[in-house]
C-alpha cells in the first residue's frame, strides 16, 4: 500500500479497511489479521495500526472479541451506513472543488452526467 505522506497514516489505514469491507474483500464476521501482521503487511508502526483499529471498534465497524481478535461487524445497518459515509466523503471532495469553481448545483449534475457518459464511451473503445 502506498501512503500519502501529508495525510495521517492511521486515517489512511481506516480508509483502506473501509474499502476492503465495501468491496467484500473483508466480509461481515471475518477476522482481521493480528495487529503485528497488519503492521508488517503495510510497513507501518504497530501503534498506528492500533489507533486505526481502536477507532474502527469505537465506530462499531469492527468488533473486538477478547483473546480472539478483531472481526468485521455483522450489523447490516452499520455496514450500510459505512458505505453511504464513504461515498459521501468522496462526493464531498468533488462538490467542494466544483463549488469553488462557482458551478451551480444544476451545472454540477450536468457536468457529472456528461463525465460519466464520456467514461462509458472511453471504456467501450
Amino acid at each position: 500500500m502506498e501512503f500519502n505522506d501529508k495525510i495521517p497514516i492511521y486515517y489512511q489505514i481506516k480508509q483502506y479497511i473501509y474499502t476492503e469491507i465495501i468491496i467484500s474483500h473483508l466480509s461481515p464476521g471475518d477476522k482481521l489479521p493480528a495487529v503485528r501482521q497488519l503492521a508488517l503487511d503495510l510497513t507501518v508502526n504497530v501503534n498506528t495500526i492500533q489507533r486505526a483499529l481502536s477507532e474502527l471498534i469505537d465506530e462499531g465497524v469492527l468488533e473486538s472479541k477478547r483473546g480472539k481478535g478483531n472481526f468485521v461487524t455483522e450489523d447490516e445497518t452499520i455496514l450500510m451506513k459505512l458505505r453511504e459515509k464513504v461515498i459521501e466523503t468522496q462526493l464531498q471532495h468533488v462538490y467542494d472543488r466544483l463549488a469553488e469553481l462557482q458551478l451551480s448545483p444544476e451545472e454540477m449534475i450536468t457536468a457529472l452526467q456528461n463525465y460519466i457518459a464520456k467514461r462509458k464511451d472511453d471504456n467501450h473503445d
Binding site: 497514516i9 508502526n45 498506528t48
Partner: peptide, 30 residues
Amino acid sequence: NILDQVVILKHQMVISQKSAEEIREKDGLS
C-alpha cells in the same frame, strides 16, 4: 511511515519534538 515521533536536533539542542501523525493532521505537512 513507521515513526511515532520526530526529534529535531540543531545547534547542539533539541529544537522540536512532535508526534508524526500530528504533523500530518494538524499542520497538513509531510
